[in-house]
Amino acid sequence: MADRFASLTTRVDLSTELCGVRLQNPTVLASGILGTSKGLLKGVALAGAGAVTIKSLSLEPLPGHNNPIVVGFEAGMLNAVGYANPGIKEGAKEFSNLKEVGVPVIASIIGRGVGDFMKVLEGLWGLDFAAVEVSLSCPHTPGYGMLAGQNTPEATKEIVSVVRKGTELPLLVKLSPNIPEIGRVARAAEEAGADGITAVNTLGPGMLINIEARQPILDFKVGGVSGPALRPIALRCVYDIYKSVKIPILGVGGISTGRHAIEMLMAGASAVGIGTAVYSRGIEVFGKVCQEMEEWMEINGCTSVKELIGAAHAP
């Protein structure tokens, strides 16, 4: 095992960089999955993630939607968690001493408007986050993201230009896949000072109905679509964004294997988010994806992640 590891590290370099943050490998725990406690983040880091994102924090505590908040189907998952979180004050307690996690930790923050975002950023001061991700794209929480119109180019520019002044950390902006010209939204974020783009949030919202109960299954009735159904859409979004901006992209959506991760890098991502695959392949998915990437890269004579980023754009 030790020998094999040594041989792989000499031949294949999985490390990458995202907005100046060095990652041992390109897999990143996507926001909203497992990021509720420092203990869970540690577990995900041990399972092999190159970086982790916390579950989004808002200014005030949010109770989230009633159960069911998650439902699966043949092509993925639908969720309407509704941003359940204890608020920034409690969140700051939970996420103290983040160095213990062992990999870079990205703070995900949400707000009803720029005032909220600035106060949440203030609450992050003094904590060991490596970057901040501003989500403007949740499809299932009234007052936030898509349901507050934060996903348009205009709103994105307005929010990001203010939020930019609230932190010196690298700033990622998380976008919704629901806009056909996603490149325009990404450009608006870049012009407003974003250091990177996270693409994409869940799609939709969508709905699933239990026909015996004659009721939508999610208590909120609708929820964001993730998993395999989202993958081709996420890829197209990242491909478009790569053409539109110079800042790096964290590609998220339906990635569950090493091949999927490589595909996302080729579309233009510098790192890849993994979320729903924690359900299909367990928490070990991060290590598995890395191993599968290494195997593919070895067979295909590829020595570094850098060679893969944007490879699908070659003429």
């Binding site: 999955i33 497992l34 509720t36 406690s37 869970l40 998952m77 359940a84 924690v278 359900y279 367990g282």
Partner: peptide, 10 residues
């Protein structure tokens, strides 16, 4: 095992 709500430490 995806939402993290029921976590006890790790």
């Amino acid at each position: 095992g995806v939402c993290g709500q029921c976590c006890c430490n790790g």
